[in-house]
Write a protein that binds this DNA or RNA. Sequence first.
RNA 1: GGAGAGGUGGCUGAGUGGUUGAAAGCAGCGGUUUGCUAAACCGCGGUACUGGUGUAAACCGGUACCGGGGGUUCGAAUCCCCCCCUCUCCGCCA
Length: 424
Amino acid sequence: MLDIKKIRENEQEVRQGLKNRNTDTTVIDKVVELDHGRRKLLTEVEALKNRRNVVSKEIGLLKKKGENTDKIQAEMRELGDKIAAIDVQVREIDAQLEGQMLLIPNIPHNSLPVGPDKFSNKVVREYGKPVEFNFKPKTHVELGEKLGIFDFERATKMTGAGFPLFVGAGARLQRALIQFMLDLHIKEHGYTELWPPSVCNSASMRGTGQLPKMAEDMYHVILDDLWLIPTAEVPVTNFYRDEILDRTLPIYLTAYTSCFRREAGSAGKETRGLIRVHQFDKVEMVKFVEPETSYNELESLVANAEDVLKRLGLHYRVLMLCTGDISFSAAKCYDIELWAPGQNDWLEVSSCSNFEDFQARRANIRYRKDGKVRFVHTLNGSGVALARLVVAIIENYQQADGSVILPEAIVPYMGGITKLEKVS
RNA sequence: GGAGAGGUGGCUGAGUGGUUGAAAGCAGCGGUUUGCUAAACCGCGGUACUGGUGUAAACCGGUACCGGGGGUUCGAAUCCCCCCCUCUCCGCCA
């Protein structure tokens, strides 16, 4: 959520930010009008309440002396009715204002390239080179089905399309990668591990910005009004919701969770394989930092995610997303994409964002600095998403015979398996 | 799911419908004392919204906040209703 004061004082800047994002700015018109009306009513009703408070005290004193207060009480009853009427109006305006404020996305940071869509994203750097094959590389679907490391047909029987099922060495590979990534972040990057719930309540979803706008993209457990988490960002960021932190910042947390996404509206797109699925696994990194440091922290967050890919020897590139392509809550975002030769395309495996105080305001996460209470800045990034990482590993490390040599870094986690081969 | 108990400030914990923003303690901040640390003593406190003065730092006001939302009343932490959450016991159960 934006600061209403910022809208009041820097209206043009906010409008320009929204325009750069391709967002309709009429919401600002509404907000400005509501805010104006709200404050006018507030001054009025608060003056009346002050009078009521003063007179009520007098009534108490008069009664103690045994004097008759019927007349003043009747007056106050009238005043009370007036107050109640204005209070109703204020409450209505508050609700409308809150509703509008929740729909306004974050303002993009001024370092972003301005542009309407992903074609304006800027490649910041590229690591490694594409693997050269002396045969035509296969897709992970062709390879994996032959290797028996996943089974999409039976997954469809159990659950439905878009829910992956890993088998044997494939299942172990998932577990190994999770362990490898968590160990790296905990031991070398300074994160503390959390193992959070897989469902969250609506307040948490609002806190990180999924609600109210993305309700249709999530699985909703209606009986208990709980939501399956689309990312560990939700539980981990909400770890500190409604708290004033007394710990020294920065705080780095990491968590592995499954992630659930309905992917409404993307039916038919990339439906085969592991590229776009309803459930996938991800190690997430979340930071709570002082505002002055958040852009430096974003750079080191990206570096932490890149470290995973470097150690796995994968070819990747880092994109700085343009104003039109960043997500609702983010002020700045880097995407990391892996090269997948079977797909002949780049695959997004990480999205590292600085939300500034946008989530902190919604989730009410603050800290004390020199006796004053301030909102923290929150950041998060995938470190990294598994399904697509597996795609890249399989497609990059494939051999002519259809086997897959595993990157050295995960061999210790694979119980001696160095190669995925067909088992009969 | 059934029965009971409870939700008060950063924490612990009092609280009579009328100077209660809220006793007390702890923590915190400032000061005195002290060779240093500690201790002792004195003093100060919350948050949000909002009005005024000021370029600003700031200062002076107002309103609201005792789990959340309603209600009764001139006046509610205190009385009533609804909801949420936590704990204990029972039931069920990986």
